[in-house]
Simulated assay, not measured.
Amino acid sequence: MFQILKMLLLETQVYVLSGERELFTVEVPQQLYTVEYGSNVTMECRFAVNGSLNLGLLTVVWEQKRQGQPKSKEVYTLRNGKTFPPSQHHDYIGRAALLHSELKLGRAILQITSVKITDAGSYLCLIDYQGVDYKYITLEVKASYKRINTQVMRKPGEDKVVFMCQSEGFPLAEVFWQNEKNFNLSGSANTTYTLTADGRYNVTSILMFKPNMGENYSCVFWNKELNGATSAHISTLALMSTQHSGQKSLILFIIPMGVMVAVLPSALIMFQKRKSFKNGKPKKERRRKLNPNLKDENRDDFNSQTEAVYLSTVTESRDSGSVGL
């Protein structure tokens, strides 16, 4: 890329010295852009179109160079009026575009969506249109520590409490701890960080000590480069409410279990008595209940015996010539 740039600049100098062409210049209305992580940005450089634009003669190149990186990244290239996607760096595929509708006005506007931390750096805007010139634009990306995740827990087997604050942002932030009287507790804190895939810092700070129950504490993420601070408040009441909830849950578990233990023996006794009562009933009575049409065998036997005795008595009376009633 730099070899092409040198050749184009040399070509321009020859045209100027020979008087065949006026000096072609590129201007930038803004040299520094500062944007929030995840937002969109448009950067612009301008050039003269001399009344009307001949798109087939226009070449626009946008490149990004990060400090400490040996090579630049090609963000977007328009060559002889046509987009040249093969040269675009994969970090910008689908995110970087040139607003073609603005070219006829002499405005080469680069738009980058969903800005990442790695998008920060110096951007080259080179334009070749009846002459060659370029300018540099700086893009700064900030990621405020907006959301702070907090956690409070009691250290097992000790009377100390562990407070934790965690957040992500950029640049690297310092973390300070203080109580509600603004007394600095940072000396007892342990703060560590890691880098995320998109270049932000994942900062975690842990403070472990014996607090005054019911007192409020704060962790403050201080971003020196952005001159901004974000804080979160933690109260030991949260720990007390957690313990109370645990005790309440235990009570709600114990009470039903106690009721079941008390009621179960009584239910078993009633069941055994009912079973014994059913087993003690005569079989015939149970059979009669099951079949109401079933005759009583004892009653039939009694009637048969009575009839036999009566017939025997009548016979004997006839033989003796009298009947006794």
Rank of each mutant, 00 (worst) to 15 (best):
P292L: 09
S322Q: 11
K142V: 12
C165E: 03
G51M: 09
L103F: 14
G258S: 14
G121H: 01
L78H: 02
P156Q: 09
E22T: 05
I137K: 03
V259A: 12
Y310M: 08
L78E: 01
V161L: 08
S218D: 02
T242F: 06
M240N: 06
N40P: 11
K65F: 14
D198E: 09
P292C: 03
E11R: 11
A189Y: 11
Q178V: 08
N279C: 06
Q247E: 13
S39I: 03
R299L: 10
E174Y: 00
E297F: 02
T313K: 07
A238S: 15
K210D: 08
K224Y: 05
T118V: 06
Y193K: 00
K283Q: 11
Y76G: 07
E27K: 15
K146H: 04
K281C: 12
K6T: 12
A197C: 02
H90V: 10
L325P: 01
T196P: 14
A120Q: 05
L226D: 10
V14L: 05
L250A: 15
A232V: 11
S186K: 03
S312H: 09
Y15A: 08
K82W: 02
L53H: 04
Q111T: 15
N303Q: 01
Y129Q: 02
R299A: 13
T118P: 00
K295R: 10
D296F: 14
I93S: 06
D198F: 01
Y145S: 07
I251N: 04
L264K: 05
E215G: 00
N80E: 05
K71I: 08
R200M: 14
Y92W: 01
L5P: 00
D133F: 00
V16E: 14
T138S: 09
R107S: 12
A143R: 02
Q151K: 11
N216S: 10
R66Y: 00
I93W: 12
E215T: 12
T150S: 11
A189E: 01
L103W: 10
I255Y: 13
F163W: 11
G199S: 04
R274C: 03
